[in-house]
Write a protein that binds this DNA or RNA. Structure first.
Lengths: 334, 334
DNA sequence: CTGAAAGCGCTTACAG
DNA sequence: CTGAAAGCGCTTACAG
């Protein structure tokens, strides 16, 4: 192991040039002649030189690091998002500092890390804490983007799926199937995402003169959704259709409906989720879902955020990425 | 938005102390009197000061950043790992720089980023590239730990599950169920993890005088495993049990066995995976699996890696974390 | 305990 | 195009 890293100073000595020349050879667009660059490169290769990004960050006050705050990666939508974000940001020369914010590691600690490491921008993909963190980042002058959620607060960009439209599409689908007693399992009460999906769902039911037949809160968790489902099925007239605010909860509901209660899906009860995560497509799950294209959402997020870096005056945008209803066996027998 | 961050110099002026004093107030264990510290803290709070971790890294040559290289987060084992690693590293004052290495973003680019950002240590949790990257990091003097894989190369620590023992346990389980034609779906051929699981599986079968009845390579991918399963079922005498090198592939196999071929699981064919990921426990999947405790593995990894930082001379260890066989409906009817 | 000063490894005006 | 020099925001011997 060679231990210490070579510095620009050492490369300069080896190449017989100034340290500035070394820096220029590694700075895209810097004015340096081809011969000089060649000499620098040769020496750099020989010494295994890599510019120190930390030192570069200090002088440019650009870390080229984006803080990504996630939580609850058990929901399979987020791993896909993370992978896509990583790809899109790397392609644009940025890296991801991954923070997982949970109850223990609260908003304050997360904010502290974000600020100390001088991240260039922040992507918030965590249900909880997001609003507070978004405010705090804005106050510190860091561009923020909410992923899969939004906020009324000004100056905060967001990328979301078609929550309201998707909720409506699922209601219409249930209605078309002849279901009359549709229930909803909400995510977290103060989540804009869950509220919008519910709103659309209610609108879709209302078009057919129907009202919600039951409603429980699953908190976006597997166990929470399972319990919510038990509550719904305990009613005198149990629902004949359930829309859960995301696939993760819908899959929990499916387990309870089929295995705890021995009901037939979709015969006795139709089921739908949101996100179209991979498990939804597994034959044994076959969950009807409104798709959110994680890749496209990530691309838009990376693009929007980095353009905010270049043009701070840019108007902050709330982007909605189109999805579509994917009908599978959980709502309609093949 | 306040725009620029306060510096130690500004805090010092506001508090009427030297800049060194400000630094000491924020350095655990530095010699500073209580009154001085109080004055500094007051001024720091008023200015919203947070020490610049970038500048600190430059002078201490410790970034307190651990590079985590992952790939294919679609396998649900890795999101759990990532969450656990993040928790364990944050608890020890370190952050995660997340790199996703795929074909496009190859080993060279990944190594380059790791080195430029001067990460303190690297955790490799990617099937491909790991060996090359591990070598390169060692050559650069960066502590490396392989997660869920190992290598013959010296100086590389690793944390794995009980691959060989687990493979053997699954073979014995199949044998106890009276299965005589057990097949294996490998991950990637040159993956130590897949090889060890296979080795244990063969040993377990051999104990009962059985040989492998079929073998295909799934490449750890869903589609690859589905295709591997089709091949296995196309044989004259199809297998009556399949062990896939991980849950992700076992679930793909389950879809093919039940839905493409209309066979009964476990009646016609018993199925087992490895990892005990969350979907394995979903009632509609109910996959028998050998558990790998992601949380415990992450704790050990964080601990081992950070102790290597403090004591570079420390002997590098290969740790194996105990798991256990979880029997579910895919192999044994309830 | 406290402060003045050197220095970490770069980028980037400023001259030439 | 090229080099000498200042400076990014810290930590840490070195004196006192």
């Amino acid at each position: 192991m060679e231990g210490k890293h070579a510095t620009a100073e050492e490369v300069a000595r080896a190449a017989g040039v100034s340290q500035s020349a070394v820096s220029r050879a590694f700075t895209p667009g810097a004015s340096i002649s081809a011969p000089l660059r060649a000499r620098v490169n040769a020496a750099a290769d020989a010494l295994g030189y890599r510019p120190n990004a930390i030192a570069r960050s200090l002088i440019t006050s650009r870390s080229r690091i984006v803080g990504v705050v996630a939580a609850y990666l058990h929901n399979h939508f987020y791993p896909s998002v993370l992978e896509a974000l990583s790809r899109e940001l790397q392609a644009r020369g940025h890296q991801i500092l991954l923070l997982t914010a949970d109850m223990a590691q609260g908003a304050d600690a997360t904010l502290d890390t974000l600020l100390r490491y001088r991240v260039d921008a922040v992507i918030l993909a965590s249900v909880t804490l997001s609003s507070r963190l978004a405010q705090a980042c804005r106050a510190a002058g860091i561009p923020v983007l909410l992923f899969n959620r939004t906020t009324r607060a000004p100056g905060v960009a967001s990328v979301t799926g078609e929550n309201r439209i998707g909720g409506r599409a699922i209601a219409r689908h249930f209605v078309a199937l002849g279901r009359r007693r549709a229930a909803f399992i909400a995510g977290v009460e103060d989540s804009s995402t869950s509220r919008e999906r519910e709103r659309g769902f209610l609108e879709g039911l209302a078009e057919a003169g129907l009202a919600l037949h039951g409603r429980q809160v699953g908190g976006y968790r597997y166990d929470g959704a399972a319990e919510a489902t038990r509550q719904l099925l305990r009613q005198r007239h149990p629902p004949d259709a359930i829309f859960a605010a995301n696939d993760h909860m819908a899959i929990a509901a499916m387990g309870v409906v089929r295995h705890d209660c021995g009901l037939d899906v979709p015969g006795d009860l139709a089921l739908a989720g949101f996100d179209d995560t991979e498990p939804a497509a597994w034959p044994d799950i076959a969950l009807t879902s409104y798709a959110q294209p994680a890749g496209e959402m990530a691309r838009r997020a990376a693009e929007a955020l980095l353009s905010m870096l270049d043009r701070p005056a840019l108007t902050v945008r709330r982007q909605v990425v189109a999805g579509r209803l994917i009908i599978r066996g959980s709502s309609q027998a093949a």
